[in-house]
Every structure is written in structure tokens, then in C-alpha cells.
Computed example of a mutant assay.
Amino acid sequence: MITSLRFILLTMMGLLVTNPSFTQNTTFTNPILPSGADPYSTWHDGYYYYTHTVGDRLILWKTDNLANLSSAEKRTIWVPPSGEMFSKNIWAPEFHFIEGRWYVYFAADDGDNNNHRMYVMENKSEDPFQGDWEFKGKVGTHLDRWAIDGNVFTYKDQLYMIWSGWPGNENGQQNIYIAEMENPWTIRGIRVLISEPDFPWEKQGDLTNDPNTLHLNVNEGPQFLTHDERVFIVYSASACWTDYYSLGLLSFDGSGDLMDPSAWTKSPQPIFKQSLENGVYGPGHNSFFKSPDGSEDWILYHANSNPGEGCGHKRSPRMQKIEWNTDGTPHLGVPVSENTVLKIP
């Protein structure tokens, strides 16, 4: 009787956890993990499947509450074989559930950044923690150019990929490209340029003030976002090693073709940037997700807690709810401080 009463009382107080992935916590503060760049999550069948850049392997987390990632179940789903063109520098993985199968997209190289390309793996199981992950190969156009940060989405029954790539074969500028996909592992046709660095806030790359230092013009980390039948791409701009790393917005007018560059409009100012007041620096490489009931839109992003921390292991994943402007565009607000208590999605 005493044991039963204690069980009831602890359950009512939210102090008893019967499922390691479930807690009664209703609030959280950022960051949601101490480290983890390029965060991405997918909601499927009652759980969030979360991942971020680890570098030498692919790891997947499973939780019903992203605020509890530190205690969530996680699994290494793939370690690359050595000596391949995709064995090292595994960046920005994304897990997608497409037509009843799981796919993970990621960028990788052989230790030489010039050889970064996009790759994909497939799992036919309903549960990505089960079944076998099959390496499907490289995802790219006939040009076979440098490529990172692939994001796939479906619009009007057509599957697309967007990514960051070089215009040629040498470093110096990263653009956003789009292409139609024949299937989840094959691009159909050519890539189309829809954004390149135009504004000063997209071209911050020099921390040393040395005129001989490369000033890198960057558009990367594109993410598809839709709301009330409007289509957007939110992307990261400027070099990740600067505090000026920020998010820009591309808007599709809805009347044309996604593959037509003139159908996209770029916002002249960043829509999400560092906050000195809140102590958040270099926020970027985001993704979006909805609350479990589908009523709220949230942003996942990484940022630093101090200025000058660059794009290493000090970047930590954070999340906050977003709103929508009267003109239908996303309102991301300001990166909240680490002292701000937020309600869970």
C-alpha cells in the first residue's frame, strides 16, 4: 500500500520516469546539448529522430521530447569504411522518411575538402533503429562539383534537392542550387543556381583583418520551409568561423517553377543573427520541425555562447518557437539567451 501510494504521489509530482525517453518536464533552457553542429530532426510515429554533425560516423537520437536529448536513446547507424572518397569529414546529416523508407543524406570526403560530395543511404525498415542501412552512393549532377548540406523535400508531388556548392572547381564562393530528383538517390537533369552571396552580411569571412586572408562568400545550409501554401528556403550566410554567421531567406512567389531562378526573391537583410545582448553568437545551419500536435513551428539551430569561438565543437544545438508575419513570411525573432525558460514543443 505504501509503495502504491508513493508511486501515485511521485507520478503526480512528475518525479517518476517509467520510460527513459519520457519525462514530465514542461520547460527547458538552451542549449539542448553541450555540443552539436548542424542539428536536424524528423518527427515520425510519435518520436523525434535527431542528428547532428559528429564527423566520423552517423549517429541517430530517438526521443518524444527534444529537450531531453541528453538522456535520449541513441545509436551509431553507420561508420564509414576507410580509404574511400566518403570516409572522412562527414557533415550535416539529415534523416528523411520518404515513401515508406528511411534515407540519410550527408556530405563527406577523403580528407581533402576539395572532394566533398553528397551521399545517401537507405533503410527499408519502418524503424530507423532496425533493419539494414544500404549505401546507395553519391548524389550529384553530371558536373560532379563540390557539394555539401543537401536537403530534400517534396513540392506538388515532385522530389527536389537543394544544397550548397561551388560554381567551379575551386573554393572561394558557395551558392545555393536546386535540382529535381528522379528518386531519393538520383538527381535528374541539371542543377540550377537560385542564390549566391550578394550582400555584405553574406560575405563576412575574415577574423584576422589580414588583407591576404581569404574573404569567403557563403550561402550554405539551405532548408525548405512551407506555410499556408507559401514556399521558402532559409539558408546560412557568411563564414561559419565568424560571429556574423546568420540566416537569410529566399521566397518563392508560388506562380512559377521552383527551377526558375527568377521565381525566387531574396530578403535584403538576415532574418536571424547574433545577439550580443543575449550572448548568442554565430547562429546558423538550422532546420525546422513542428510540435507533436502540429500546431507550432520551431527552429533548430547551432550557435556559440561566446564571441570568437568559431565553427568547432563549442557550437551547441538550440531550439525556439517561431511565428509568422502578416505577409506570410517566417518571423524567427532573436536567439534567446541561455537563461530564458521556454515551454517544450
Rank of each mutant, 00 (worst) to 15 (best):
L66F: 04
D297K: 11
N171M: 08
H285W: 07
I178T: 02
L15S: 12
F7W: 14
S164I: 02
P270Y: 06
D56E: 11
F289E: 07
I77T: 03
G310T: 03
L225H: 06
F153L: 04
N175I: 03
T226K: 13
D38E: 13
D293C: 07
H116W: 11
F97Y: 15
T154Q: 09
P20Q: 06
F95E: 01
T3F: 08
G172S: 03
T186M: 02
G150I: 13
N123C: 07
I194V: 05
F106K: 01
N151M: 13
V104K: 01
Y40R: 11
I178H: 00
G36A: 05
G312D: 06
N209R: 09
S251A: 14
P261M: 05
D257E: 05
S291L: 07
I178M: 00
G256W: 06
E73P: 02
T23F: 07
F22Y: 15
I344R: 10
E338I: 14
W78Y: 15
N325V: 04
Q174R: 09
Y245H: 07
W61H: 09
A237R: 00
N171L: 08
P317R: 04
H331M: 15
L15C: 11
N169K: 14
Y105P: 01
W241V: 05
R117W: 07
F135S: 00
G189W: 01
S87N: 08
T76I: 13
A263Q: 12
F232M: 08
D112N: 15
H331P: 05
L33G: 01
D243F: 02
G131S: 00
Y48P: 04
P81L: 07
V54S: 10
E323N: 14
E134W: 12
P261W: 12
E229Y: 13
M161N: 10
E99G: 09
D56F: 06
K136L: 13
L225Q: 04
A107G: 05
D38S: 12
N339H: 15
N123Q: 03
V341R: 09
V280T: 15
I299E: 03
S287R: 09
S87R: 09
